[in-house]
Amino acid sequence: MSDAIHASSAPRPVGSYPHARRVGNLLFLSGIGPRDHDTNAIVGNIHDADGRLLSYNIDAQARAVFANVRAVLEASGARWQDLVDVTVYLTDMDADFARYNAVWAEYFPDIDHAPCRTTVGISALPTPIAIELKCVAVVKE
């Protein structure tokens, strides 16, 4: 048996899927990016007058992703500390990994209590974002 989670305080998914699904005491979060809940704008993106992406701020996007993950966790009855596994997708590993890793360390300063993590460099994500997280958490019954 599984339960779909739709978090009202997180940005809407960009497709037809729930924010998360709970199966027993495991919580599986769908891929979450750095969009703003209220405006749906991509945090940290800078566009020209014609709407073309000029640049982005990986620090701002990483912090926005973490805030969105936290919103889904809380809507699911989980906490930040309940994360056990995170897969990180970066569209520019060379340019962004060090900055992302520094932001990660701010949110998970104690390596012994941080979730496991895999970081993957990819060529693109479905929207013009530089980072997306896929997470698994354990929820206390």
Rank of each mutant, 00 (worst) to 15 (best):
A64I: 00
F28R: 11
I58W: 03
T87H: 02
A95D: 09
L83R: 02
L54V: 08
A49C: 02
Y100C: 14
E141S: 10
I131A: 10
D50C: 09
V136S: 14
A20S: 06
A62K: 11
L26F: 03
K140R: 10
A105H: 14
D36C: 03
L125A: 06
F66L: 13
A71Q: 02
P18M: 09
A41T: 14
L73A: 03
P11N: 02
I122T: 12
R12H: 11
R63G: 02
A102Y: 12
V136R: 13
D96K: 12
Q61M: 05
A124G: 08
H113V: 03
C135L: 11
G51Q: 14
M93T: 04
A95P: 00
G15H: 14
T87N: 10
D85T: 11
P13E: 11
T87A: 12
V138K: 11
E106M: 13
R79H: 09
L27K: 01
V65W: 02
D82R: 02
V84F: 05
L133S: 10
V69P: 03
P126G: 14
L125M: 07
A124N: 15
F66S: 00
L29R: 05
V69M: 10
H6V: 01
V43M: 13
H6F: 11
D50N: 12
S55E: 12
I111R: 09
N101F: 01
P11I: 00
F108G: 12
T127V: 07
V86A: 04
I32W: 01
F28K: 09
D112I: 06
P11L: 06
A62I: 02
A130C: 10
C135Y: 01
G51L: 12
V103E: 03
I58E: 01
E141F: 05
R52I: 13
V69N: 07
D85K: 10
T91R: 05
N57T: 04
A78V: 05
I129D: 04
S9A: 13
E132A: 15
N45M: 15
L26G: 00
A60N: 13
P109G: 15
Q81S: 04
A102H: 08
A130V: 11
L83A: 03
T39E: 00
D110Y: 01
V120T: 03
H37A: 04
D82Q: 02
D3I: 14
V120P: 06
S2Y: 10
R22L: 01
N101D: 13
R21F: 03
V120C: 03
L27R: 03
H19Q: 04
D85N: 11
D85M: 15
W80N: 01
V69D: 05
L133P: 04
A41W: 10
L54Y: 02
T118K: 15
R70C: 01
